[in-house]
Amino acid sequence: MHMQGSQWSAAVTAEGNARALTAAHSGMRGGSAGRSAPLRVDAQRNLEHVLRAAREVFGELGYGAPMEDVARRARVGVGTVYRRFPSKDVLVRRIAEEETTRLTEQARAALGQENDPWAALSRFLRTSVASGAGRLLPPQVLRVGVDAEAEVGEARVPQQRQSSVPAQAAAQPELRLVERRPAAEEDRDDSGAAALLEVVGRLVERARAAGELRADVTVADVLLVIATAAPSLPDAQQQQAASTRLLDILLEGLRPRPAA
């Protein structure tokens, strides 16, 4: 299942009241997340546990999953999560930003280490799918992907994975975050997305120019492959087998059709 960016924002907004109550009980101080002082060893360990748990939980349930689920997976109190990330929005954007950077690095590695255009594109797709990146594709990447390819026609981009969200949030797709983020944060999000789309675009153009890729395949289609070929199944071995099989089928669908 998937979740559109607006629903994702609504799910984040729906966490607000719960966050405020949790913060009050845990004695959270609003400015703690912005401190630049080095973390103690135990605090650094807790941060790593929280980030790892957040990737797993959001990957399995979508960005609508509650912070309590992240805390349980990390085996820390929910107050510990909120001391490092004063809102769910902050944690989600941290994970999304890291995932965008990871995908960009994987694309650059494939572009720089594979001379054959098709080998470079398929390597990027296999590496990205194997890392589970498709389950954490950030909404801003998909939004920019739509904008960048609007002139080509209707972009086919993946929607976010969806977990159970409050009925009111699901019924109001136009909800937005009440507090607008600082322009600097929005610019950073967009610049990260733009960097990813630029390097993936180079992979696509090279493969297309070499006649190894269908002429109608776009960057949005490549993102769709990454999202589609990364199912979340309870059994790890079954998940890997299903992902590999599905990716093989999707890769074949990207190849040019032989002339009749």
Rank of each mutant, 00 (worst) to 15 (best):
E179V: 14
R126H: 08
R123H: 05
R73T: 08
R123W: 02
L142T: 03
A120P: 03
N17Q: 09
R72Q: 10
A37G: 12
L137R: 02
R29M: 10
R156D: 03
R176M: 15
R188G: 07
E68V: 15
D235Q: 09
A183V: 14
A195P: 08
D69L: 13
R40G: 15
A33R: 12
H2T: 15
A241H: 01
Q172E: 11
G5V: 11
G16Q: 12
A183L: 14
T100N: 11
R245I: 02
E149C: 08
R93H: 12
L203D: 03
A96N: 05
A169Q: 03
G64K: 02
V76W: 03
E154D: 10
R188I: 09
A227V: 12
V217S: 07
L203R: 00
A23P: 09
I95Q: 01
A207W: 01
T218V: 12
S6E: 15
V178S: 11
A209V: 09
V199M: 05
L196G: 00
A96L: 06
I95A: 02
Q160L: 14
E205P: 11
R143F: 04
S243Q: 07
G31R: 03
A23D: 11
Q238T: 11
A20S: 09
A120H: 00
S164M: 11
Q7A: 12
S131G: 12
H49P: 01
T13S: 14
G112V: 10
H2G: 13
R84L: 10
R93I: 14
R84S: 14
V50E: 01
R188C: 07
D189G: 09
A37T: 08
E114F: 08
L213S: 04
R214T: 02
R202M: 12
L223F: 03
D190M: 10
Q113M: 08
S191G: 03
T13G: 13
V222F: 07
V57R: 00
V200M: 04
R188T: 09
E185D: 15
L103H: 00
V157K: 01
Q162V: 10
R257E: 05
A170P: 14
S232Q: 07
I226T: 10
I226D: 01
P86F: 03
R156C: 09
Q140G: 07
Q239I: 12
R75M: 13
D190N: 08
G201V: 10
T228H: 13
R102T: 15
V222D: 03
E105F: 05
E151V: 11
R202S: 13
A241E: 04
R257F: 01
P38V: 04
L136D: 00
R176Q: 15
R255C: 05
L103E: 00
L197C: 06
A43C: 02
D248E: 12
A184L: 11
A155P: 15
H25Q: 15
E154K: 04
